[in-house]
Amino acid sequence: MYNFKPYLRTRPNKLWVISIAIATLISTFGLSYVFGRHQKTAANNFCVGVILPLTGNSAYIGQSIKNGMDIARTDYAKQPASKQLNLELEYSDTGGDAARVVTAYQSLVNIKNCPSIIAVQEGVKALIPLAEKDKRVLLATSVPDNGITGQNPWVFRFFVSAESDASTMAEYAFNKLNLRKAAIIYVNNSTGISYRDSFTQKFTELGGNIIEAQAFNPDDVDFRTQAWKIKQAAPDAVYIVGYGKSIANIPIQLREAGVTATFLSMGTISQPEILQAAGEAVNGLYYTTAEFATDLNAGTPELKQFVDSYRSRFRKTPVFFEFFGYDSLRLLLLAAKRGGTEPEKLREGLSAIANIPLAVGTVSVGQDGNIHFPIVVRKIVDGKWTPAP
């Protein structure tokens, strides 16, 4: 009879050794491969946090900007570069409440670990020292307030500044329209105050007088008290500063109060829904705007491409804020392509951009962080813009 005990005792030991060796190889190379792939994927992700109002009185601005960014993301996904750099957009709705901006920023930086933040409208100033402390690129758009850029190298602005916008309007009013007595009605927040101060400074420097200034709250719809006071002052020009759909009520109520002065304003008043609501009250109004917004059939090939893509997706024509959403994201992607997604490299890449054709026109980044593009004056005639004389 054969004795199987030696065989049984020896055979399992050999199998055990082989099994241990195979398991070791798998754990060493297999897991390193898995973790290596995970690390590579994480390194190739580019998170862009976006803080904007998607609800509230300014929701149409936030939604317009978001629509532009969504088109930019779709366009980017079609490019070969998207295979090497995966774009992640993280939107955070503030509801137009400036107090929610810091909380949104902290979540995007500390939880999502986004190296760059695009911030829209109110509350951006509170992020300026945080961006420097956290070493995060902060790109402000639809934020014209004075005092945004020039404080530290991490902050950029891609929008008209109150200083340049209001100064352009003041110079045109004084030199071209021969207006000498102006009243200002403005939204009582950092944006409105920046425009009020910049217009006042330039207009008085030229020799004009500001004879009345009236403020209103962002959610106001009744401006009859301010209109009556402006009527009593008898200006020959009224500079209207605000945004949101309720801004259409201002020229209406000024005319109803008997104000016959020439109306001046900013680009926000040229939105189709505002022009439609204001009707005859804005006929003859002059406003400043970016050059691209006056003729969508002209401009750069990038503008035409964006307009075509936007019309195809949303079944309507982009007006103003959509372009800044589109190009804001494209600027950051261009900076990431040039320098990388690490915050310092991203900042350097954005700072180096010069004479780049985008949808808004040819842009350059100034030493102070302002991103420059052409500004013009236009006039509303019968509900449509025309070139100003």
Rank of each mutant, 00 (worst) to 15 (best):
L285Y: 01
G147K: 13
I61W: 00
K181Q: 10
I20S: 08
Y172T: 13
T94F: 10
I240Q: 06
A170G: 13
A298V: 10
G244A: 02
R100W: 00
K202N: 05
K337L: 01
V377G: 03
I371S: 09
S82T: 08
T294V: 15
A21T: 12
R311A: 12
K337N: 12
A352Q: 15
P129A: 09
L254Q: 04
A261M: 05
R100C: 08
S309C: 04
T103Y: 08
I230Q: 03
K245M: 13
V160A: 14
I111Y: 09
Q276H: 06
Y243A: 07
Y243M: 13
N355M: 13
Q226Y: 01
I185T: 07
S198G: 03
L52C: 07
P387W: 00
K40H: 05
T55F: 02
S351V: 08
P153D: 15
T268C: 02
L275H: 01
I71P: 03
I252N: 02
R180C: 02
A182N: 01
I371W: 11
F4H: 13
F263T: 07
F320K: 01
A162T: 11
R196L: 05
K379R: 14
K40E: 02
A278N: 02
S19D: 04
T386W: 02
S164L: 13
A23W: 06
E90Q: 09
A237M: 10
G366R: 13
K78D: 06
L31V: 11
K181Y: 01
R330I: 00
R180S: 08
G123R: 12
I252A: 03
P218D: 14
G258S: 12
A170R: 04
D70I: 09
R313L: 03
K245G: 12
Q226D: 04
L332C: 09
P374S: 09
D165C: 06
Q367G: 15
G242F: 07
G123A: 07
V137S: 12
I22A: 09
M69V: 06
L264C: 06
R11G: 09
T362Y: 11
K40Y: 03
Y33G: 08
L332F: 08
N297C: 09
R180Q: 07
F314W: 11
D75W: 00
T289D: 10
T362K: 15
V365C: 13
E280W: 01
E163F: 07
Q276I: 02
Q276R: 09
V360P: 13
A388Y: 03
S198R: 13
G279V: 04
I184L: 02
P129T: 14
